[in-house]
């Protein structure tokens, strides 16, 4: 079913079996996101942030309710269709960077384009553009072991952004970075959000990340406890998150 929203969930429920009992990770969560948002799910551990990202990232299906992502109903996707949607339209940024260690920064960024069978010449340009966005064009030949934590995360951002996906999901992207690198990374993401109109959805409880959000959704025990629009940094109007 097509949808004008980038993401829309209705009464989303996710229940995990835990031995003989069950744990409700998401409890009737109804949310929607427009294209170009820079939003974050915040809340304590176990509040359902990652579970929500899993479902909108097509890595998991809801127990009940519906999730529409980029015009597709998540619960109706096969493994192959879900992979195809992630491949074309969703970028992931992980807490621990997860670069492929035997490949250079260039090759790590190139990998999603290989899956998309992008022609070589176009691929080269897209990879160098992506590395340029994150300020690492000169480190293209470096292997992950030769990069700092901040540089590794910037390469991971370039890898997630290289195919210019409409949606980027970031799970605790600054958890392994110091304050300076965290701000650098967040500024880079913010810039890409503005320049490429990519929607960013974070799962975080890092105050530094929260300070950059323009929308903050608070989850507690799998329920939406708050959903507020915030003032963008340096902008006038609403309160900062």
């Amino acid at each position: 079913m097509a949808d004008e929203k980038l993401i829309r969930t209705e009464n989303l429920v996710k229940i995990f079996p835990m031995g003989s009992s069950k744990v409700t990770a998401l409890n009737r969560v109804t949310l929607s996101f427009q294209a170009g948002e820079f939003a974050g799910l915040v809340g304590p551990s176990g509040s359902g942030k990652t579970t929500f990202l899993n479902i909108v990232g097509t890595l998991d299906a809801p127990s009940s309710g519906s999730a529409f992502v980029l015009g597709r109903t998540v619960e109706g996707l096969s493994h192959r269709e879900a992979a195809w949607l992630r491949n074309r339209s969703i970028g992931f940024i992980f807490q621990t960077f997860n670069l492929l260690p035997v490949y250079t920064a260039y090759e790590n960024v190139e990998f999603p384009l290989l899956l998309l069978k992008t022609p070589a010449a176009q691929r080269r340009k897209m990879v160098m553009d992506a590395l340029d966005w994150v300020g690492l064009a000169d480190r293209a030949r470096s292997r992950p072991a030769q990069l700092s934590g901040g540089e590794s995360q910037r390469v991971a951002i370039a890898r997630a952004m290289v195919k210019k996906p409409p949606l980027l999901l970031a799970d605790e992207p600054t958890a392994n970075l110091d304050a300076e690198n965290s701000h650098h990374i967040l500024q880079t993401m913010e810039k890409l959000n503005r320049q490429l109109a990519t929607s960013f959805l974070f799962a975080t409880h890092d105050e530094k990340v929260i300070g950059y959000l323009r929308r903050k959704i608070t989850l507690v025990d799998g329920r939406v406890a708050g959903d507020e629009n915030c003032r963008a940094r340096g902008a006038e109007g609403t309160e900062p998150c």
Partner: peptide, 9 residues
């Protein structure tokens, strides 16, 4: 990572 990025199993 490869599975997350959309490579099929």
């Amino acid at each position: 990572v490869r599975l997350a990025m959309g490579e099929t199993k």
